[in-house]
Design a protein around this nucleic acid. Structure first.
Lengths: 194, 194
DNA sequence: GTTTTTTTTGAACGATCGTTCAGTTATTAA
DNA sequence: TTAATAACTGAACGATCGTTCAAAAAAAAC
């Protein structure tokens, strides 16, 4: 035997992923060519196929990693018990996580249709899990008579939609700081379920 | 002179627009070919160039019409004076208008990057006008001490984000009726600015 | 240094893309 | 009916696409 897998490969694959993420986010999956990705990685297009079976797999791996990482990061958090505090914690967490990964967030809801049906279902399942986190927080709060909402599922979606909107306009060097934005959103969310 | 402009054209151009709207929404602008659009319209690809100078113009015309129509339709409404009623009216209006035009709404925020810089700026300007409608409602409500929000601009964006989310999951034959959804959203929005 | 295996190249494949345009057909004014 | 023009065809243009693969280069194992 000679040359264990990953003499350059260990560096090359993450490099390809990072470059693809950037390009997909900037130009859109359909508008980015394999040659474009390869060029930025200092490779020829053919070399990409040592790391990914096809173009779509680059995208689906990015999306899977993003969603799995999101859920794992949440699981690693130490959560407050009290529903009001937990809801605020969720808002803070969501904003922090998403504002720090604008490219992943962007392609995660822009490029879903470029996935195969299988991969699409997998991603949707993970997304559903994330929405369930918020639903559960609301459910517990409603049980304890701390929150009130007509429909927990719809309220969850509405809140997540509100939070997602942030990524479409927030600029780190803008008028308001992340801290301020978080406080504004926490207040809106808390009032929305009061 | 013979044959005045639009013997068939009067029917053909709207037909092309409608077909393109459908395809763009379903497959994405970049993934739809001129030949595909032409085939569905019973034409050859070349014929499309009698009606649009290039592919991007089909998209930009769709988006411009959508945004202009949105603003015009709003202008034609008879508005209630009282801020609480006006805010509810806005929510109802937004949901009605957008749920009835899912394809337009979808491409309006999915395909912006496929516009030229000029066309992009025009659309963004119209979008800003729409956001200003809501901002003004909030501003008036705050002045009269009926609403409270830390930051009107951000609150407007958050509310519109929440409303936009609706289009990504709402199905007409789903669990809840449009009327119920509207009521749920109106309650959430009103509480969010209380 | 030789062998073995990984990694990459570079050319080629067939397909499809947006767009152009000379020529044909369909329609209408005169 | 004839002349004028609008509408459309059908072929062609050059370019680019995702993907494949034999051959070459690079790196590790012996």
């Amino acid at each position: 035997m000679a040359r264990t897998l990953g003499s350059h490969a260990k560096h090359t694959k993450p490099k390809i992923s990072a470059i693809a993420l950037n390009l997909f986010s900037e130009l859109g999956f359909a508008a980015v060519s394999m040659r474009q990705i390869a060029a930025k990685a200092g490779l020829q297009a053919g070399a990409l196929y040592n790391y990914f079976p096809d173009k779509q797999s680059i995208l689906s791996e990015l999306l899977m990693n993003h969603m799995e990482n999101l859920l794992e990061t949440w699981s690693a958090q130490v959560l407050p018990d009290e529903p009001n505090e937990l809801l605020k914690f969720f808002v803070d967490f969501h904003i922090d996580y998403h504002l720090n990964r604008p490219d992943e967030v962007f392609i995660a809801y822009m490029e879903l249709r470029n996935l195969s049906e299988d991969n699409f279902r997998k991603i949707e399942k993970l997304r559903g899990k994330y929405e369930l986190i918020l639903s559960k927080i609301l459910t517990d709060g409603v049980k304890e008579d701390l929150f009130f909402c007509k429909d927990i599922k719809i309220t969850s979606l509405a809140i997540i939609g509100m939070l997602k909107e942030l990524n479409t306009w927030y600029k780190k060097d803008g008028r308001v700081s992340v801290l301020e934005v978080k406080n504004i959103y926490k207040e809106i969310v808390l009032k929305a379920v009061s």
